[in-house]
């Protein structure tokens, strides 16, 4: 289908949203077929998830440290620094862990998925697979989608753990909050279901959204260098907007 430039950006956006939604159906339908290519899914978890670990861990550490620092000063206004452990953990689990990890994931893994698939299309590799009777949706698209879905909650857990570690480092070792207070206040106020698990739900949904957008943009990129470059940019833009919007919706309804 030909898209006309004269249309407003809104029509373009609607077209894109609709097409992405339709692509989700295609991917979901292809999941049973892609189970044959389990090895490919594992390989993608390696590329998409395991290789994002370092950046996620370092970012988590710093986010936790700065969080502890900022909240300490805010809490000290009210004389409530004993709650530092609680607020650091809650901010991480409920909000910053899923969102920051998702944004990093979109930049680190989403773009590479888009560029890779776009390049495969441009160099006829997807056609070559089709002609070798290997369905590229089941072999290329779905494994990457599933890998994003599986990796994000795991990455968020690692991010949160590193964040907590960083927060503890600053709060206890540097600002001198009592270690016992830090932990006991946290453990009596943080709930597994409403805080940890709901945060993981966010991670799961963000992972699905990012990898859907990345795969869709790559799969539909025009087979030119400019086309692939634009698709990569669109992945980051769309993924960021969708993450923040979904975050609001999920916070409003879930937590």
């Amino acid at each position: 289908m030909k898209r006309l430039n004269k249309h407003s950006a809104i029509v373009d956006a609607c077209y894109e949203i609709g097409a992405t939604g339709w692509f989700l159906v295609v991917l979901l339908v292809a999941i049973p077929r892609s189970l044959r290519y389990l090895r490919e899914t594992i390989r993608q978890i390696w590329f998409v998830g395991a290789k994002s670990l370092i950046i996620i861990m370092i970012s988590g550490l710093f986010v936790g440290m700065v969080l502890s620092l900022q909240l300490y000063y805010t809490l000290s206004i009210f004389g409530g620094t004993s709650a530092l452990g609680t607020v650091v953990a809650l901010s991480l689990y409920r909000e910053l862990g899923p969102v920051v990890t998702a944004l990093l994931f979109a930049g680190r893994a989403g773009t590479s998925i888009t560029a890779e698939i776009g390049l495969m299309r441009a160099t006829d590799q997807l056609s070559a697979m089709e002609l070798m009777a290997v369905d590229p949706i089941a072999f290329v698209a779905t494994p990457r989608f599933l890998a994003g879905l599986i990796s994000m909650p795991l990455l968020v857990a690692v991010f949160n753990m590193m964040g907590l570690f960083g927060g503890h480092l600053v709060g206890v070792n540097w600002l001198g909050i009592d270690n016992g207070t830090f932990w006991s206040n946290m453990t009596s106020n943080v709930n597994v279901w409403t805080d940890v698990i709901n945060g993981e739900w966010k991670a799961f949904v963000f992972g699905a959204a990012i990898s859907l957008i990345a795969v869709f943009q790559g799969y539909n990129a025009p087979p030119t260098s400019e086309g692939v470059a634009n698709a990569t940019t669109r992945t980051v833009v769309w993924a960021s907007i969708v993450i923040l919007a979904l975050d609001f919706v999920m916070t409003a309804f879930l937590m």
Binding site: L119, T123, Q125, A128, E130, L131
Partner: peptide, 19 residues
């Protein structure tokens, strides 16, 4: 169609190797 394609070999004009 896929069953048929399994019985057809295709040499691409631009090779199209999986990079």
């Amino acid at each position: 169609l896929y069953a048929l394609r399994e019985r057809i070999g295709f040499l691409f004009q631009n090779s199209a190797l999986l990079t």
